[in-house]
Write a protein that binds this DNA or RNA. Structure first.
Lengths: 213, 213
DNA sequence: TTGCTGGGACATGTATACATATGCAAGATA
DNA sequence: TATCTTGCATATGTATACATGTCCCAGCAA
């Protein structure tokens, strides 16, 4: 695997941050990264600027780059924002999903019910949310959610891994959302999805609080 | 006014696009812009990449940059997305605005009622929306709306200027939103704001349709 | 001891030269 | 004549050298 383009470098860095290999606060120095990837500073520089715009990197003294560090308040805002956007998408999806997509959603729900492995469930969970996202027929709003989720992912990865205890709750929430969508009840769908995202935020803060003890 | 930094070039280009001086489809060539601004290609290149990320520029053949051209469907999606985000912000604001902010909102409303100049009303309108945006206490969601609005602004500027006929309708919608906020009724606020944004979209498409005749 | 000042180190910012890719047109060939 | 090839024009992509700005620390003075 040879990294030669700015695009590849950007993706590699995003992956490193989202996966937690590059923890918040880690310095990102153009020259060092250039040597590491075997390229000049130019493409690295471009990748770092894109990271900054994606809010995955921030700048400190000497305008130096670092992997972004988020305060707890920022995290609350981030999840709240993601909740508003994703619940908007879900409400649109309730009105617009095709019969085939509704069937697919039910199938994914059933798959989740039959799954006890947290890691596999994570993949099913992603497909559930992706189905709603594409069912909303709004690529711009979907891209907006993706941008926000990239940041929540980065935070989660740096702090904790999937928790099996939440599995049953998540299943129940997904079931409620699915039922609201099948009933084409947009406002109920919106409310339940907002609550679902908020609930995942609460789980996260609980884990952090327990760890702090 | 001497332009020397990438930041300044970016802002200058954004302003040119949003104000409609650089119409959709206009080619953005690194070398030509560099000469025009009296700098090298490097900062221009950086500015163009930022424009691309802000979705104000797009790339065509030879990876060349152009001022972004939006299809009517994209415009519908864009306004729908902005409506979801801004209505979310408004709903949050209904629960969170301070007494002082509520008074300010009423004052701005009264100011708008007493104003008949479309251009001055535009400024008052902006203050109305800004007050809600800051009242929501979520900087991330507010920034998300700003990004989307930059794109709607670019589109509007390239196509039409403020229309006096909509003034009375806008006033009535603002009044409804304000009343819902004073009543701390988040869900009504959300609904009215979504409808308000949709209404401005309809006005825009009407103007375009009439022009096409 | 404390505070100010100047220089050096180090990071990003910019300029410029060269590399690469692609669309287009002209010309050769079937 | 139609098509394929080849070369050029032109745009961005990358490498490298130099410019700029700021933090830090050493050293001197009050």
């Amino acid at each position: 695997m040879s990294i030669r383009t700015a695009e590849n470098i950007f993706e590699t860095l995003v992956d490193g941050i989202v996966a937690g290999r590059m923890p918040p606060g880690e310095p990102l120095v153009e020259k060092a990264l250039a040597e590491q990837f075997g390229v000049s500073r130019t493409p690295v520089r471009e990748a770092l600027h894109r990271l900054e715009q994606a809010r995955l990197a921030e700048r400190g003294a000497r305008r130096a780059f670092f992997v972004r560090q988020m305060a707890p308040d920022d995290l609350a805002e981030l999840f709240e924002a993601a909740g508003e956007v994703e619940s908007g998408l879900a409400a649109l999806a309730a009105n617009r999903m095709s019969e085939i997509e509704r069937r697919k959603l039910e199938a994914i729900l059933a798959e989740g019910d039959a799954c006890d492995d947290p890691e596999a469930y994570g993949a099913i969970n992603a497909r559930f949310h992706d189905t709603l996202k594409s069912g909303a027929r709004n690529a711009i709003l979907a891209a907006t959610l993706d941008e926000l989720n990239l940041r929540t992912l980065a935070w989660r990865a740096a702090n904790f891994h999937e928790d099996a205890s939440r599995l049953e709750t998540s299943r129940a929430e997904h079931r409620g959302i699915t039922e609201a969508i099948l009933a084409q009840d947009a406002e109920t769908t919106r409310r339940l999805m907002r609550s679902h995202v908020a609930s995942s935020y609460i789980v996260l803060t609980d884990i952090l609080a327990r760890r702090a003890e």
